[in-house]
Amino acid sequence: MLVARAGVLANAVRVEADSDDRELLAHLGDVAEDAQLVLRGPDSRDVVLPESLLALVLAAAHDLAKGNAVLALPMETRLTPSETARVLGLSRPFVARLLDEGEIPSQHLPGSRHRLVRLTDVLEFQARRERRAEGRRRIMELAEEVDLPY
C-alpha cells in the first residue's frame, strides 16, 4: 500500500536574508579563520558546536550575502520526480525521460510504478550537466579565438 507523503521541498527550511543581513553576512568571511560557532543556552551556558556545523553556517552565509535563498535538506533526502524537476528547473516529463534512460538513478517503490530519487544523485547530475555546458562554452571560445567556423 502506498502511503501519501508530504512534499519534501515544501517542508524544507528555506532561509532568505534582507539587505541589512546580507551586508552583515558579507563580512563573516573576514572573521571566519579560527572562528568558533557557539550556542548559548537559556541558562547562559555556552556550547561550542562542531567545525562541520561552522562550515555549513559559513557556506550558507556566503550564499545569503549574495542574495540567494538557502534551502536546508539532508543529502539522503529522497525526492519524487516532480520534486526533482523543481530542483533542477526542468519539466517533469523531461526528468521522467532522464530517469527512464538512467541519466539520474532512481528506485521504484516496492509494488509500484512510483519512484524516488536521491538528492545526492540529483546534485551529481546537475554538476555533470554544468561541467558539460562549461566544456561546450570553452570549445566555442577557442573556436572563436582561432576563427574556426562552427
Rank of each mutant, 00 (worst) to 15 (best):
L71P: 04
R40N: 06
L54I: 05
K66M: 12
R92M: 05
V57S: 01
V38H: 05
E51R: 11
Q36D: 08
E76N: 09
E23H: 13
L142R: 12
D100M: 09
E134V: 11
A32F: 03
E101S: 09
Q126I: 05
E83F: 02
P42C: 10
V70P: 00
L116V: 11
E51S: 12
L56S: 04
D34Q: 09
R137M: 06
S82C: 08
G89Y: 05
M75I: 13
D20V: 15
A61R: 00
L2P: 07
M1R: 08
D100F: 12
M140A: 15
V31W: 09
V38N: 03
G29C: 04
R132P: 00
E76C: 04
V13M: 08
S52Y: 07
T77P: 01
L39F: 14
F94H: 15
L25W: 01
P81M: 07
L49M: 11
A59I: 03
R131D: 09
L54T: 05
L54E: 00
G102Y: 03
D20S: 12
G7H: 06
A32E: 05
A127C: 10
L64V: 02
A26W: 01
Q126A: 15
L54V: 03
S19T: 15
L148G: 06
H62S: 09
M1F: 11
L24C: 08
E134G: 12
R131P: 03
